[in-house]
């Protein structure tokens, strides 16, 4: 600040006021631009650069291969399988998160007993470290001594224990369930915050106009939630799409490659197959998919501004 001020003053007599302001502005945003370049632009460019080489991870030595990594990936069944698994996981967990999140937000918006306590407790899964949460869930899902199998057999819902993590489609269902459990509180707090700002008068007017509870939900609540739901769904879609730790810790991508999403594939290429180049190529392709979400976000932002 002091430096910027002093510089601006030193050159003040020779420059027009508007130029001085422009210069000061540039100086003030310079730190942000530098940090942005260091932590975002450099890694991005270097990932793209690396993806054009065949690199052995332990030594980081390699040779120029051009687009060969991409050609190999796009022709491989494993890549498209990971992409498909990624889509199934993202859509599955996202739908559950949103439905569960909106339903609980509506419930917590009502005058129920222990509302404040419930509002705090609901955030618990979101705050919990992923490693701890997944360890607990692995214990719940365990086919030999897991409480889930035990409880379901005790209630007579099944006769033999199920392998919740080691077989399909159970593994995918388990991952989706744990993902929804872990991240639905984000939907709850966002939606609840919006619900609290909807004026009561709108509901009263609708009541007098003849709307029942379902009419009030579809005609008042849902349209009022539209904007926040768009943002929440978009953000959660981006975050779920690149989710790594939860899936890696719960199933490791298995059985075989049944829950191996793109982030897990990046990890596999980089550290299991020791191909940093191939891993970078997967990451770059993933980024291209996510670009789609980003464009949607920008377009929506511009639409709401106008």
């Amino acid at each position: 600040m002091t430096n910027a001020g002093a510089t601006a003053q030193a050159i003040a007599p020779r420059l027009k006021l508007s130029t001085q302001y422009g210069l000061l502005g540039a100086l003030l945003i310079a730190p942000t631009v530098l940090i942005f370049c260091a932590v975002i632009v450099y890694p991005l460019v270097s990932a793209i650069y690396l993806s054009l080489f065949s690199i052995y991870t332990p030594t980081l030595k390699g040779s120029w291969v051009g687009l060969d990594n991409y050609v190999a990936l796009l022709a491989s069944g494993e890549f498209w399988n990971a992409f498909w698994v990624n889509v199934v996981w993202t859509v599955g967990t996202l739908v559950l998160q949103v439905v569960l999140g909106v339903a609980l937000a509506l419930l917590l918006h009502q005058n129920i007993v222990f509302r404040s306590l419930a509002r705090s407790l609901i955030l618990f899964p979101y705050f919990m470290s992923t490693v701890v949460a997944v360890l607990v869930w692995r214990w719940v899902f365990n086919d030999l001594y897991g409480i889930l199998n035990h409880a379901m057999m005790w209630m007579g819902l099944m006769s033999v224990p199920l392998d919740w993590i080691g077989s399909m489609p159970n593994a995918m269902i388990s991952v989706i369930l744990v993902g929804a459990w872990k991240y639905f509180p984000f939907v709850v707090i966002s939606v609840l915050a919006r619900l609290q700002t909807i004026p009561d008068h709108l509901y009263e007017a609708a009541t007098m106009d003849g709307a029942g509870w379902w009419g009030r939900f579809t005609d008042i609540t849902l349209p009022q939630l539209r904007e926040v739901l768009f943002i929440v769904i978009l953000l959660r879609a981006i975050w779920d799409f690149k989710e790594f730790d939860l899936i890696y810790l719960l199933t490791g991508g298995g059985p075989v490659t049944a829950t191996q999403t793109l982030p897990l594939l990046v990890y596999k290429h980089a550290f299991a197959l020791n191909e940093m180049g191939g891993a970078s190529a997967v990451a770059v392709l993933m980024m291209l998919f996510m670009l789609g979400f980003m464009l949607l976000y920008f377009r929506y932002g511009r639409a709401t501004e106008s």
Binding site: H201, A205, M208, A211, I220
Partner: peptide, 15 residues
Amino acid sequence: AERDLAMVFQSYALY
């Protein structure tokens, strides 16, 4: 809704 009355609110309460 069944009282056959219409109300105009202070805030207008337009949808």
